[in-house]
Amino acid sequence: MMYLQHFGLREAPFSITPDTAYFFSYGHYADALNTLLVALRSGEGFIKVTGEVGTGKTLLCRKLLNTMDKDFVSAYIPNPQLSPYGLQAGVASELGIALSNRPYGHHQLQKMITDRLMELTSEGKKVVLCLDEAQAMPTETLETLRLLTNLETEKYKLLQVVLFGQPELDERLNTRQVRQLKQRITFSYRLEPIDREGLDSYVSHRLVVAGYQGGALFEHRAMRTLYKCSRGIPRLINILSHKAMMAAYGRGDTTVDEQHMRLAVKDTEDAQLAHPPRRRWPWWLAAVTVLVSVALFYWQGDRLPGVSL
């Protein structure tokens, strides 16, 4: 990255790739991770995490996978837009089941997964399946997922599932076809954008992880514009911060000011400066105002001496 040496950085601080070294353990992000870990340790079967585009669901998912200790065995499906068979094959592969090129029947695959889960459970392991972008999962595949969670002993679930998805996932779960799956969700968490107080800490955290050792790199007005235009969404914060630093570097400046940030905003389609809406009076209020003005005009004309209308 061209500006690394200019700002004294070891690596790019505002990359949009989900690097767990940059996980921001603040506010609801820390709460979400703790909620997931507590729920999984207690053996809950189904957990759901939703959030708008760019709020950090994938980063949270990867942080969860990296945080689980040796008592857990994890399986990760990054793109669950799969057929029911594809989901079963993906889970089997993640659990270390060797599959040949010959086709398997659904029941055969289910038995292989069950046997593997029983084996892991007998070793004292808890198996967790994490699915990212779950709102894209076809209805038939959601039903296959539900059947996978039927696997249990008298005391334990053989498989715990964490769904990460956009708010559209809630809409999917509210449909009649998958109502049985919705009833199984025992924990839910909604990721919200970063608040204004957390923005300074978020930006500083990423800069420090990237090796920055100087003073405040972003001026106050630049931060104010950053928050207003990013709406606190981490992905937009990263994009705007990166572009603003490039603008500062291009002009030879050692700090990022409001002008640099406005250039970044202008270059980013989903982050425009909001203009306050014009106040519009209701039509009936405007009509009443006109009528009152006319009535006063005639009334005053009748009372003035020597004035005839």
Rank of each mutant, 00 (worst) to 15 (best):
I194R: 00
A30F: 11
G27T: 08
M245A: 04
N101E: 12
A32E: 03
Q272M: 10
Y189G: 06
Q300D: 15
P138R: 05
G105F: 06
Y202W: 07
R251Q: 12
T35M: 13
D19N: 13
L207K: 04
E192Q: 15
C61G: 08
P78Y: 01
L142W: 02
C229Y: 00
I97W: 01
K243L: 09
L120R: 09
I47S: 01
G105Y: 05
K57M: 07
A21K: 13
P277Q: 07
G86P: 02
A89D: 11
T144Q: 09
Y29V: 06
L226N: 01
G250V: 06
V203N: 01
A32S: 06
A89S: 14
T35S: 15
E44Y: 10
A248S: 12
H106N: 12
L263H: 09
E197R: 15
A89P: 03
H28M: 15
R279L: 14
D19F: 01
E219I: 12
N174Q: 13
P167D: 08
Y104T: 08
E119G: 06
R184H: 02
T17W: 10
G165W: 00
Q177P: 06
L309I: 13
P138M: 07
T55C: 07
V128C: 02
H6G: 05
G27E: 03
R116K: 13
L148D: 02
L40S: 01
D270A: 14
T255L: 13
C130D: 02
D253Q: 11
G252W: 05
K228P: 05
K157L: 08
L240P: 01
V265W: 00
R231N: 11
Q110C: 11
F24D: 00
A98P: 11
Q88N: 14
I113Q: 00
R251G: 10
M261S: 03
E258T: 12
T255Q: 11
L285W: 11
E192W: 08
L9H: 02
Y22E: 01
S100W: 10
V49K: 01
P138Y: 06
R102V: 15
F72Y: 10
R278E: 14
V128P: 00
H220Y: 15
L263W: 09
H275P: 15
M112N: 05
D195E: 09
Y85T: 14
T175G: 10
I113V: 10
G301W: 10
M137V: 08
A136W: 12
L296V: 07
T58M: 05
I194W: 00
T225G: 04
A21L: 13
L142I: 08
R190S: 10
E52V: 11
R10C: 15
P193W: 01
G45F: 03
L163D: 00
R278T: 14
G165A: 10
V73P: 04
R196N: 10
R62T: 05
G124S: 05
E140W: 09
L158M: 09
D31Y: 13
